[in-house]
Amino acid sequence: MPITEADVEKVAQLAHMEITPGELKIFAPQMADIVSYVEQLNEVATSNVPPALGGFTPEGEATDSSRDDIPAPSLGQKKALAEAPDAASGHFRVPKVL
């Protein structure tokens, strides 16, 4: 099913992205092309194939990634807020939610 401009508007909304009418005109046919290209996967028989989960090697899968639950210092409030566009009173300040 080809992607329409309405589909692109919908996914932009889901992705929290504003999209201009000019961008819509460019993106819709490009995305339609890409989606129709990837649909060639439908010709591959996969009914009994379990999906690959990531690029993991057997050794990577066998590696125990857990660590002991010991408290350790973290970044700290000052560093964590240092790059925020609008920090106030030890918090990230954002525009009104409602």
Binding site: I3, L14, H16, M17, I19, M31, V94
Partner: peptide, 29 residues
């Protein structure tokens, strides 16, 4: 942007370039 959701949308519209937007939307799709 007076509201949070609008701030997200405008920030991402102005902050990302076309290829990144295209891939985020394809991935979301």
């Amino acid at each position: 942007a007076p509201r949070l959701r609008e701030m997200y949308r405008k920030t991402r519209e102005e902050g990302f370039g076309p290829e990144v937007k295209r891939r985020i939307m394809l991935g979301t799709y």
